[in-house]
Structures are given as structure tokens and as C-alpha cells.
Design a protein around this nucleic acid. Sequence first.
DNA 1: CATTTCATGTCGCGG
DNA 2: CCGCGACGTGAAATG
Lengths: 225, 225
Amino acid sequence: MRLVVARCQVDYAGRLTAHLPMATRVLMIKADGSVLVHSDGGSYKPLNWMSPPCTLAEGHDENGTAEWVVTSTKTGDSLRILLEEVHSDSSHELGVDPGLVKDGVEKHLQELLAEHPATLGEGLVLVRREFPTAIGPVDLMCRDAEGRSVAVEIKRRGEIDGVEQLTRYLELLNRDPLLAPVRGIFAAQAIKPQARVLATDRGISCAVVDYDALRGMDDAEARLF
Amino acid sequence: MRLVVARCQVDYAGRLTAHLPMATRVLMIKADGSVLVHSDGGSYKPLNWMSPPCTLAEGHDENGTAEWVVTSTKTGDSLRILLEEVHSDSSHELGVDPGLVKDGVEKHLQELLAEHPATLGEGLVLVRREFPTAIGPVDLMCRDAEGRSVAVEIKRRGEIDGVEQLTRYLELLNRDPLLAPVRGIFAAQAIKPQARVLATDRGISCAVVDYDALRGMDDAEARLF
DNA sequence: CATTTCATGTCGCGG
DNA sequence: CCGCGACGTGAAATG
């Protein structure tokens, strides 16, 4: 890992072209050759960058100014960095990172709900997870106490897209005489008001899911075995 | 901008929880207080981060180890960084960045198709670009050889969202007796199978656009003047 | 390897 | 401030 603080100008050419006027920035060069150009603001996204695999060639332009050219070995995208003044240039041995451990994503939520479908509605029984349709899999297909089909769409955060998605599934599923009538449940840890309005308007019910409670149920169950 | 190279452990709690075991990494602290944790690989996305607005509190844990706690002032998300050993710690004055100048493909594609609507369908004539409706502008409004209205939605990559968008426009436009009947064309440089199925099912035709060929037509035309 | 879906998405625009 | 769409989306899982 090499860190350079320098007054520089950057030009990118690839799927689009982009230009950064001369200013002081931080250049991060990772062990795999990838380059990040960061300013002192914004968020985690660099102003400009080159993803691996790529190669960095250090040279000089016609005026003798230091020039780096980073080229993607795969796509041919290029990043040209003109270094007017280097304030700092240091390298550090980092070693391989053990990696990130995450907890609490949609997949886990789907697993928990698949194991406890009744939390979505009394008497609900799981028929199948990732129920296949022509336009993609329905997260959960269930049957209610009356034996009617229920399609469940699960999101971490319930927004309008999710309702649209479930609507498409329902439209398709309801054309199948073996399944119809199919009703829908939109399940999420939190549901935005607009999404709730749209869902309700389309006869889709909403279920707010308590992730911690579900995990608790799961743990309690696991302890029995 | 402060750059710290340190052996550290990181724990994030927010929309999800995530843990980084003890290892040597680069910590980037921007002027607005935001923090990025980078390893020597991956891509431009940090292993962990905190977006502004946030505050960084430096202190020590119960064992006397240096501990940073970064808290989002808005969402309450927190990032806890334990620093076992600091290899380097430097600060740099960067100043305000003049910002990125982009020259994209999306808008250009719309301009080219506006100039050559017949490539989307024989006899097609442009009525207006960015045709206004209550729910947003239609990319291109045209008329075909028979004088019927045609709404065109343009995407670089044709996916299901684009079909949904065009469907909403068509539904609205077809309520206008001066325009109706309006048919739709979904134009993109590439159209995903699922999007094509949905479009076809809804009576929307698909047009795959050759960007380079269009640009070539435009250049040839420009040479005449 | 192509494709689809998820993301602590982020970013920017318009109402 | 919120909704919505684009992104050099990237990255992971899956067939």
C-alpha cells in the first residue's frame, strides 16, 4: 500500500470521460495495482479510481512533469495522473486482510421467515422458498389456514420497488389456475409510508418484521436440540 | 485529511453489524469527520466506513488500548476502532476540491436517437425530446408513418425497471384523447431477456441501439456541413 | 462464465 | 427534506 499526497490533475477515459482539475489530493495505490484518488470530502467513493486488474506506469509528460498512466488490463480504461507537486509519498506493508464478517442481511431474514412463516400471518405454512416463476423467484410461497396461496416478498427496507416486484409476481401467479387466487404479503424490517400506501391500494398486506425477535425465536428453538 | 496506518480491529453497528479482526490497515479521516478503513486489496470500497455527518471521539478502552468511536449524528450508526499499534499518523491540508467534470454516454445516446429516430422504426419522426407528463418526462415522443403517437424510453442497459417506467408513461399518455392510442418502444444498447419478455407481454416493442453506428451516422452527417 | 440480485449502495436532480 | 432514477454502479451468489 502506497500513499501519496500530491497536487495533481486526473483524466479518466473508459465508459465515460472525466476530468479533475489540478488540486491537492490523496492517491492510494494498493498492492494489486489499483489506484484511488480521494479528496478531503464526499463519502467513501473516490473522485476517480482504477479497479484491478490494472498496471501503473510512471513516467513524464512532454514538459517533464511526473505522469502516471494506469491502464485496466481487461477493459482498456485508462487513468492519467499528472503530478505537479508531491507533498508526501510513503509505502506500508499491510499483509492479507482476514476479511469482513457481516450479520443481518436479507438472506438471513429470508431464512428466519422461512422457518417461522406464522409470524407473517396466523396459520401460514411454507410451501417453498425461492418459488420459481418466469420473471424470477418469489421469496416465499405459502398457504394460509384456508388453503389459499400467499406470495411473500421480503426486503430489509420496504420501498416502492419491492411492491412493484411483488405486484408483477402476483399478476403472473394469478394467471395460473392451479394457484389462483394468490394474495401477497410485503414483509420488511421497516416499510416506508409510500410503499405501504401503494401496497394497500393493490390489496397487498404489509408485515413489519422484528429481526432480533426472529433471531431470538431461532436461538430458543436451537437450544431445544 | 489524516492518514493513519495501524494494526486495528473494527466493529460496525448500524443497518447491519460487521466485524473486522485485528490486522494492519489504512485509516483515512476526512475533513468532515468521515472515516474509511482500507485494506491492501479489494476495490475502491473500503472494508468499513462511516459517512458524514459524523463525529470521531478518541479515547481508550478498559485495557488502555487506543479506541476511536465514530458515530453518525444522523442515523446513530457507530464504528468502533481499536488501535493496537500505530505505524504512521500524518495530517495534510488539501483544501476544497474543484470537483469532477463528467461527459457521459446516457445523454449523448438520447441526443443521437433524437436526431435519427428512424433507426428505432421506419418512418418514425420526432415530435419532442423530454416530452413532459405528470409523472416525469418521456425521453422521446414520436409519430410513426401512420401518424400514431409513439413514446420511446431510452436506457443504456435495458432492464425491467425501464419497462415499468415506460408502462407508467404509456398508461398516463393513453388517457389523453389527443394522443391516444400511444404505443411504446423500449430502446437500449442491450436488453436483458427478462425485460424483453415483460415488454413483449405488455405490447411494447424493443429496439437494440448500436451506439457506435449512430455516432458514425452523426459524424457522416456533420461532414456534409 | 453469464446472469441476476443485493448493497451500510452512493449520488444528483427535481418537487 | 423526500422520492426517484442513474451509476465507470460494485460484489456476491447462482445456474
